[in-house]
Design a protein around this nucleic acid. Structure first.
Lengths: 148, 148
DNA sequence: TCTATATCGTAGCAATTTGGTAGGGTATTG
DNA sequence: CAATACCCTACCAAATTGCTACGATATAGA
């Protein structure tokens, strides 16, 4: 029951961009150094994020990446789903369910997985990059809201 | 963000045993046929469940498996953790965390993963096999509580 | 005591996923 | 026109997944 590093690195990179939102294009190199992620690998991940519209890019010298929307309009769920595919503990509760098993409508196990899925989605869809910025400022000011 | 088939098959097998709780040992063969799971593969999974104490076994002719505790005393979380290891979207929020990164205490991404983890655990630890039996009886009686 | 029935245990294996590396192409700035 | 930086694709080793295979051991019943 784990995320791959794609979602993990992806969120870190997006948060890095969120902290610098409005400051012009941020080079991949600087993100990969700050976040300690291989730049070649991060490039693949950010390419997916770009194709989804979550980030935009400027090519050439002084180019780089920046968020496609305000930090308040990007949720953790947006990022994870783009990089990891739909959240689904098992295939039969996936959004793009192609292989629904014959006993689906009465399967009790399935209803358990659905509850798990809904609960994960509720969490990741309720946290925006702006929320994370706020929390990081609270931590900086020694006022850790996450302990309340 | 997926479970492997280990957790999926394991829960189905345990639910199968729960439905037959008190009826003596249930053969692996009958479970694997009802649940449509390869018996050789299921044998490996149920062996792990046995070593954890969640199921007990009787060897020899007329032998089989049965729950180690009442259905009401076994949660979905017990089963999943035994078969899949600790629930943790990323390693740094795992229970048996050996590799805590240096910025752990102020890492905002980590606090997101912790919320996801807590939310999953809350769901799977609150559902027992007995709850699943109840739900299956409601479905049978055309009184689907999961639609309310 | 024999035999059928089951659980136990371990080894092996093909396919897929993961987590990258490598390297060349293209666009832009100065 | 050169340096910078994004863009794209191919490749690869290691780990994981989802099994199969097969022999050993234990027990019930004839």
């Amino acid at each position: 029951m784990k995320l791959s590093t794609r979602g993990e690195y992806g969120l870190r990179a997006m948060f890095d961009l969120a902290l610098r939102y409005g400051a012009g294009p941020i080079s991949l190199k600087s993100i990969s150094e700050r976040q300690d992620i291989s730049s070649n690998y991060l490039e693949q991940l950010i390419s997916v994020l770009r194709k989804s519209g979550l980030v935009k890019s400027v090519r050439g010298s002084q180019g780089g990446y920046f968020l496609g929307k305000k930090p308040a309009d990007i949720t953790v769920g947006d990022i994870i789903r783009v990089l990891e595919g739909p959240i689904a503990p098992v295939d039969c509760v996936s959004e793009d369910q192609t292989d629904l098993c014959h006993r689906a409508e009465s399967c009790i196990a399935r209803s358990v997985w659905k509850k798990v899925k809904d609960s994960i989605n509720e969490v990741i869809d309720s946290i925006t990059l702006e929320d994370m910025i706020q929390e990081s400022e609270n931590v900086k000011n020694n006022n850790p809201t996450h302990f309340i």
